[in-house]
Design a binder for these strands. Structure first.
Lengths: 272, 272
DNA sequence: CCAAAAGTGTTGTGCGTACACCCATGG
DNA sequence: CCATGGGTGTACGCACAACACTTTTGG
């Protein structure tokens, strides 16, 4: 049963451009792996065949709406369509560093963003028509969705997520609609379990600000009274600071900053 | 600010064996990405520098304990330590296919497993001392933890997860302890939200079987009466089938098979 | 004085935990 | 007849949604 450690040179005929037709092939290839490193290992001696990139689903809340940073593609494939910022992973680079690099190139943000979280790996063999590209999508947020500066950055734009795919909204390239949708869903989930909402508002913030961030991301309205109680009942979520803020009309609101805790006990449940 | 599209050839001096020292370097590399494909793209024309593998955290329940499939390493690095099964991703292969291939090679399972889920990407630049290896860990389960057959498969073994790191238990290679821990935590979480528990028991099963699977994975005891009500109150989780089963002593139990639904509404909450 | 937003108080309902109790089998 | 596990019934308590009410500002 065990092979002798040799394997057929699968790069014999030089890599052809694309092999969409080979999708089903791997499903029946259930023979024992001819591991070149013996039990428990795998051969990593030769050059890899698969390119690994990082794509960033970068979100913010802007005037009551959830927005995502997209970049317009200038050339084939998919010219005129919009993509999330991406970068090829460098040999000694961590995913979060590559993610920062991708966003810096598109959004003019000069400091690395703090909260980054892995989203999912997008691995469909034909997701990029040029060659095999596996993408690790990561989720990131900012409190200040600044419009990208000019020059090479001008192609980036913040789009309301609820306009994607509609008449006035962007059309996404490749499988990036899947990436954005996964990011939206993960962000909505993380708002329940973590204090990521405090990264969506600028300090200091009122509990009304925080509530409106939740409402924008979840697309629903929340009871101000109950929301307030839940936030204050969760230790480490927010900390009150000095002063009050008067917006327009209405009673001045207490000001808060981010608390120490990252996970929320108890969570802020999302209405179903 | 924008470069002209050229980038330094970062593979100039041939790749040295390992570069642990370069960990901090990428953190300050915040210059604009020199994209070789213009806005919204990245260069994928040349061979990648990063190898992508799939590591499988493969779980089962055996005699009341959660077990995981591990493979003993035979050679450097980390000989004598135990690793989860892994495989290098082939150019036209989906992650789930590579995961199946890795497990088939180690566990003698002849059919592809059904439930596979992405766990996380392990991307630390020095996680493998030989070369840069990025690992996508996936979670899989089986109802029948068969001992691997002989020959090249003999190095695989099912280990109780609660013995890992203890005196009689295995010591894990590389960062595979992180992979197993991530798998355990994800499995515990998915038991709340999905019907993955039905993949941990053989059909037909009793609600006692299902409860004991939860108890093994969660490491706690559950109220049989309340567990029963919760399972039956979740549509699509299980479906009753004909017959009853008498184990040893006690009243015969109704038999069930997997239901149609994959997500659980309402969930089976884990006690905190 | 009115509108609007922040902040506090109160109550009814629903749901889950805990436990009592009955059922059906083997020894 | 007892032990054991399966299956049903039920009451207590707590958490939360809903809504009333007060506070403090601008117009």
């Amino acid at each position: 049963m065990a092979k002798d450690g040799k394997k057929p040179d699968r790069r014999a005929g030089e890599r052809t451009k694309t092999q969409k037709s080979a999708k089903k092939r791997a499903k029946v290839a259930l023979e024992v792996e001819a591991a070149s490193d013996g039990p428990g290992g795998y051969g990593t001696d030769d050059r890899p065949d698969v390119a690994l990139v990082v794509d960033v689903a970068y979100f913010a809340v802007d005037r009551g709406a959830l927005v995502v940073l997209l970049v317009e593609r200038g050339r084939e494939p998919d010219p005129g369509r919009w993509a999330v910022p991406g970068a090829v992973l460098e040999p000694d680079e961590a995913l979060t560093d590559a993610a920062t690099r991708a966003v810096v190139a598109r959004a003019g943000i000069l400091e690395p963003f703090t909260r980054v979280e892995q989203l999912a790996v997008f691995d469909a063999p034909d997701r990029d028509p040029r060659t095999r590209v596996v993408s690790t999508a990561v989720l990131a947020v900012t409190s200040t969705p600044v419009p990208p500066a000019g020059g090479a950055l001008a192609s980036g734009r913040w789009w309301r997520v609820d306009t994607i795919g509609t008449d006035g909204g962007p059309t996404l390239a490749f499988d990036h609609l899947d990436i954005v949708e996964a990011g939206v869903e993960r962000l909505r989930s993380r708002l329940e379990q973590t204090d990521v909402a405090t990264a969506l508002v600028e300090e200091p913030f009122t509990l009304g600000d925080l509530r409106r961030a939740y409402e924008a991301a979840w697309g629903i309205e929340l009871e101000p009274a109950n929301f307030r109680r839940k936030v204050l009942a969760t230790p480490g979520f927010v900390a009150q600071t000095a002063g009050k803020r008067i917006v327009g009309t209405g009673r001045p609101a207490d000001l808060y900053v981010r608390g120490a805790g990252a996970v929320l006990h108890p969570p802020i449940p999302r209405p179903r």
